[in-house]
Amino acid sequence: MKLYKSLVYRELKLSRKYYVLIGMMLLFLAVSLMLVLILPSAESISTDEEAVLPLDLVSIGIGIIGGFMGVRDGGNYSMDVKTGWARTVYALPVTGKQMACATLMQRLISLSGAAVIIIAYAIAFRAATGLSVFIQLISVFLICAGAGLILDAVYGAVVRMFRDKRQQKKMIVAGNAAVIAIFILIEKVVSLVFKPSVDVTKVLKFVNSPVFAVIAIVFFAASALLYFVAISKSYERREP
């Protein structure tokens, strides 16, 4: 446990500025949305389902941002390569699995920070509108966090393939290209599922259902497992 404490401490200390920034952004978004709901000028907003729909959609945005951004590495991978730490790790008594486990733990800690803000927002939303967005927010949050973990694993694996300072440019281009390729793939899948003819209200109802919540939990768990395997393999891989 002492080992993980050390490794997670290192990861958190390195990325704390990034996560503070993401946390502040999420808080700002959540507070702004709540202000729209509770300010006197917004009294005209009806709380029936049709009228709340735009706010409902915007609320999902908080889940998307929290999920995607909460699991990104905050620049740790490339910093590790630049400083030589990525190579030094091989001289330390730490296995690839332990490194991957510590990285995953750090991601889960930062995700739980984002989750707290999202849950607080869901409670405040219910208090202001009487409608519950809890399941849909958490489900979307988990789906995006899972997708974010997959992106992070791909980026991390690509960056760690090039551990040399001289290969930095190649590494950054390749890592970012991999992430963009996955974003394009996600966009294609989303546009196939959510065609213009699809009724948004029905989609939102499905997103707010327990079935979708279960799908989200399973997807997140599978992504976390995939992340662990990919990152531990990238740590176990030796230089050519």
């Binding site: 002492k2 080992l3 993980y4 404490k5 050390s6 490794l7 401490y9 290192r10 200390k13 330390l92 008594p93 730490v94």
Partner: peptide, 13 residues
């Protein structure tokens, strides 16, 4: 990092 941080990192390893 500072020297104290390095101790916290290595003491677990």
């Amino acid at each position: 990092f500072n020297a104290r941080d390095m101790a916290r990192i290595f003491e677990g390893m």
